[in-house]
């Protein structure tokens, strides 16, 4: 298992490789979750997850642009230095549910953006390399914008009633 604190990265190339992996993993996970919800006919959340995957890919393209002219290190998937088991912006699979509402989807997206913000803000504050601090600060500010955007979106999708996951005609039932 990985450590619960951010391990330092040595070079700008390391930092950009991490930024690329972070966005790529997030995009793939949101797409996987969109597929899962699509199979279960939850089209409203499917659309939202697709949007999140799209945004992650836009950020991925930005990170890839930064890599132009650099030779990035090739890390094995488990060699990246993440604060948790997975990259910070990768939403947790087990938070999905076939009856989940757009509110739940936005909560998931918000949590992942907040983790992304904390990750970059931590590097911006503490990294020894000035260029990494500078870029991390830029990324942290972008993540803060995403957090604000998602919080604004959530106003349109208030929390559903407590019985949101009750299904009068469940596709599965015990025994």
């Amino acid at each position: 298992m990985r450590m619960d604190t951010v391990s330092p990265m040595d070079t700008l190339e390391d930092f950009i490789a991490h930024a690329i992996a972070l966005e790529e993993d997030s995009a793939i996970r949101f797409d996987d979750m969109a597929d899962a919800l699509d199979v279960h006919q939850n089209h409203e959340v499917t659309v939202l997850f697709r949007k999140m995957a799209h945004f992650s890919r836009l950020h991925l393209a930005e990170a890839q642009k930064l890599a132009e002219g650099l030779t990035l290190p090739r890390f094995k998937p488990w060699e990246y230095k993440w604060p948790q088991a997975e990259p910070p912006e990768t939403p947790e699979l087990d938070a999905t549910h076939y009856l989940m509402t757009p509110h739940h989807a936005l909560v998931m997206a918000l949590e992942s953006e907040k983790r992304g913000h904390a990750y970059y803000a931590g590097l911006a504050q503490s990294h020894a390399n000035a260029r990494i601090r500078e870029l991390a600060q830029e990324f942290a500010e972008e993540e803060a914008e995403h957090v604000a955007l998602l919080e604004a979106m959530m106003a349109k999708y208030p929390a559903p009633p407590a019985d949101w996951d009750e299904d009068m005609d469940p596709p599965v039932s015990v025994d």
């Binding site: 996987d32 979750m33 597929d35 899962a36 919800l37 699509d38 199979v39 279960h40 939850n42 699979l93 087990d94 938070a95 999905t96 549910h97 076939y98 989940m100 599965v172």
Partner: peptide
């Protein structure tokens, strides 16, 4: 082919 597993299932990972 998209998995028909329940959303949230560990098998996706």
């Amino acid at each position: 082919l998209k998995p028909v597993w329940c959303p949230g299932c560990g098998d996706f990972a």
